[in-house]
C-alpha cells in the first residue's frame, strides 16, 4: 500500500484528474492503485460543492496536492481550464485502419 498518501489522510487536498478537472476535497481513504475516497468535494475554481462523498478511480488521478493550512482554496471564476492528459489523437481511427491494413497485407 502506497505510504505516500498517508500524510494526506483527513486533510484537504487538491486533486487534478485526467479529465483536466480540479477539485478540493478531504481525503478519507485510498488504496494502492490510488483509488481515492473523498468527502466534501468542491470544484477548485468556484468552490461549488459537487459531492459529499466520492470515490475516484486511481487511473483518473493525476496529482494530489496538500492544501497548505487547509485553506478553502477558491481560485475564482477566471481560472483557465486545464488540459486533460488523455493525449487524444485526432482521427485516431484512421491510423488504426492503416495499421490493420498493413497487417492484413502482411
Amino acid at each position: 500500500m502506497s505510504p505516500l498518501l498517508k500524510d494526506y489522510l483527513g486533510q484537504r487536498i487538491v486533486i487534478i484528474t485526467t479529465e483536466g478537472e480540479c477539485y478540493v476535497a478531504t481525503l478519507e481513504g485510498y488504496d494502492k492503485s490510488v483509488n481515492l475516497l473523498l468527502s466534501n468535494v468542491r470544484r477548485r475554481s468556484d468552490d461549488e460543492l459537487l459531492s459529499i462523498a466520492l470515490t475516484l478511480r486511481g487511473s483518473e488521478v493525476v496529482v494530489c496536492g496538500l492544501l497548505s493550512n487547509n485553506e478553502v482554496g477558491k481560485l475564482g471564476e477566471e481560472v483557465p481550464a486545464l488540459k486533460d492528459t488523455k493525449n487524444k489523437v485526432q482521427d485516431e481511427y484512421l491510423i488504426w485502419e492503416e495499421v490493420l491494413k498493413a497487417r492484413l497485407i502482411k
Partner: peptide, 12 residues
C-alpha cells in the same frame, strides 16, 4: 493557478 498554496504534492 490550480496548485497555488499547495506545497506538498503527490503525483500518480
Amino acid at each position: 493557478p490550480h496548485l497555488t498554496s499547495v506545497r506538498n504534492i503527490f503525483i500518480r
